[in-house]
């Protein structure tokens, strides 16, 4: 049987270090997501202007709702686009 060291991997096995996601609002004690500040809300949009899902941003359900509601309000006021191709 080939010993452990004899096995040559084509690509080094990347051990996926599990970094735990945290809700940035809970951590920094932010209580209110403001809809008038497009630069801050831009972080929660992807390149096409869509709202990023919770599994990527790691925010808790309560704040994800606040963020999505303020994004929709900002879109209503034309502070944020509904669709965009190269937002970032």
């Amino acid at each position: 049987m080939a010993a452990e060291s004899d096995i040559r991997y084509l690509t080094p096995p990347s051990i996926e270090v599990k970094k735990d996601k945290y809700c940035r609002f809970k951590k920094s004690k932010i209580k209110h997501v403001d809809y008038k500040n497009p630069d801050y809300l831009m972080r929660f949009l992807n390149e096409q202007g869509k709202v990023l899902p919770r599994r990527l941003t790691g925010t808790s359900l309560k704040f994800q709702r606040k963020v999505s509601q303020s994004i929709k309000r900002a879109r209503q006021l034309a502070l944020l686009p509904f669709v965009a191709d190269n937002l970032k």
Partner: peptide, 9 residues
């Protein structure tokens, strides 16, 4: 004041 809109209205 005057601001650029994200999409034309």
């Amino acid at each position: 004041g005057l601001r650029k809109l994200a999409y034309p209205i």
